[in-house]
Design a binder for these strands. Structure first.
Lengths: 333, 333
DNA sequence: CTGAAAGCGCTTACAG
DNA sequence: CTGAAAGCGCTTACAG
């Protein structure tokens, strides 16, 4: 029998060449231990000879198992998110699952469209970086019926499982660290996203608790070195006596350090600076950066592991997993 | 009729609720202009009410169009590759295609496994970052029958289309730029990959042509700021009179600049430094970095566009597209 | 503008 | 250890 439309070998072709039936070929591929060694050898030879590659669309349809994990990221332009994606990728690939990737560029509109498109592939699991905010989207994810792992944040009511840390706690920890070091005029530089807002909330609350002046707050345009230079400039304009700054991540914080050096401002003598992410750049600049340690790769690895465990039926514990975060105190503050 | 195994609505369910047939529902979804407005409205209402999401595995199988573009990346940990991926993602997503992502962590073994797995999804096109070296893998990609776009490099014999630049030409251009500025003892710092080797080859050839001393060469462990510090240290140890260095990218080059500053070495007075990629960090450090401008996002965007054009039957021209690269001369050299 | 029939290439559940 | 039958949920090609 000719190979129909595409011209590529099908399971039927392999079966004929190996002198067996399609179902046995299928079995040899998925549960080889259930097939006689001699049959297996003939099938392997036929597959090799034909260059047969199973059609996974047909396989997915028949088995109702797509082998796909959908991953939703706000942007690939954020190195920590790329690290998390790498962690997910390594873990699920080892289990034979493939990643269907959606980058929605922080657009709610595109997130919605992407979710529908991904859902159509019948993913066996979904991992999102960041919480899904919209109730309808959360309902859609829940309706998929597979594991859904949200990451990079914490919520008491995850769709299924959430793996992350409390940005509020991180903000509070940095404020307490600064205050314990005798700093009194604190500043915060962050983006417009929800995680930054939570961090600021914790930061401001801890300051208020200690009875210090409310923090000076500036918005950063992006997570770039240049944005850190601008942030430092703006903060010193609005509060020249500022003595400690917590910035959105280590790249931005490195920018603030460079700008301070160029202005002859002593770090940490006159000004303490703390970043987030324990990025390589923070370790390479001088003074070495104090930072909030968030292990982005580990978040991804854990999320991937939860997916693999759940799909293989292994019991998984907590629905809310706080990976925590710690302050790595180095030279800059 | 109950919704079989999964319990989710099928096209049949929608058809019944809308009082029409499955084929008309399918048509309303794919070519709405061919369906009467009133029928379309009933179908839309039914879809909305049921929360129907088409099963794309079934759709792919029946139509022999997967709607999938497979993308193979050596690593997601490289910010320029992430940019290229972003460019691909934006372009193909706009055309309704989805990305199946494979990160093979620079492992030939994993690249091979990934390629087979991706091929099983019947991707309509494949984009690879970097050339596929192995002949068998190239044959497999060619056999897929769809557009295959290799990027980030140039070859006279692409599988189908290649979009990139000549690393050899880039290396030669930087050497000539240094030599034209009166530099005489050049050095090169790069990784172990093929692109770095090509860059070095062009660099060394241009130097030889000018009759200058052969370059000092050091290997960089990764594309990090710290690696740049180490590179500068090693180069000065092996050639204290070195007066110009070309590094693997702007992050590494920034490390060299920082190390030079810490050692009190004047840039560009005593030492010229050139990076690659026109990354943000290069613009944010002082002195501002001279760099080879490679527009990673644009490479991705173009690759995505070739895929989209080819799939829609639009004629596409050249099989070898040299996006070129230019030296952006700034303060560091 | 709409629909009945056939089929895409696999796997499941059953039987032997 | 192996296979015949039925079906997964869509779309194609045809007819009207």
């Amino acid at each position: 029998m000719a190979d129909s439309v595409t011209g590529r070998p099908r399971i039927e072709t392999v079966a004929q060449l190996a002198g067996t039936s399609p179902i046995t070929v299928s079995r040899a591929l998925r549960r080889p231990e259930k097939v006689a060694a001699s049959t297996r050898a003939r099938i392997a030879a036929a597959i090799e000879q034909l260059g047969y590659i199973p059609n996974l669309s047909a396989s997915s349809l028949a088995s109702r198992r797509s082998g796909i994990v959908a991953v939703l990221v706000p942007t690939l332009g954020h190195s920590l998110f790329a690290e998390t994606l790498r962690g997910i990728s390594e873990t699920v690939a080892a289990a034979g699952l493939q990643i269907l990737l959606g980058d929605y560029a922080y657009s709610t509109e595109r997130e919605r469209a992407l979710l529908r498109a991904l859902a159509g592939r019948q993913p066996e699991a979904v991992v999102t970086i960041g919480l899904v905010q919209d109730a309808a989207q959360r309902a859609l994810l829940a309706a998929l019926g597979g594991p859904v792992v949200e990451t990079w944040d914490l919520t008491p009511e995850p769709i299924d499982t959430v793996i992350g840390f409390s940005n509020e706690a991180a903000g509070a920890a940095v404020a307490r660290h600064f205050l314990a070091g005798g700093r009194r005029r604190l500043a915060f530089a962050g983006g417009a996203d929800l995680r930054a807002a939570a961090r600021l909330q914790g930061f401001a609350a801890a300051i208020a608790e200690a009875g210090a002046a409310p923090p000076c707050v500036v918005k950063t345009s992006d997570l770039a070195v240049g944005a850190g230079r601008v942030a430092l400039t703006e903060i010193l304009e609005s509060d020249p006596a500022c003595d400690a700054i917590f910035l959105a991540n280590d790249v931005v914080a490195a920018g603030a350090v460079l700008e301070a050096r160029d202005r002859g401002i002593a770090i940490p003598g006159r000004l303490a600076i703390c970043g987030l992410g324990d990025l390589e750049i923070g370790r390479a600049i001088r003074p070495v950066l104090t930072t909030v340690n968030v292990d982005a790769y580990d978040i991804g690895r854990r999320a991937g592991q939860v997916v693999v465990d759940r799909l293989s039926g292994t019991a998984v514990g907590a629905r809310v997993i706080d990976v925590g975060c710690s302050i790595i105190v180095r030279e800059s503050g």
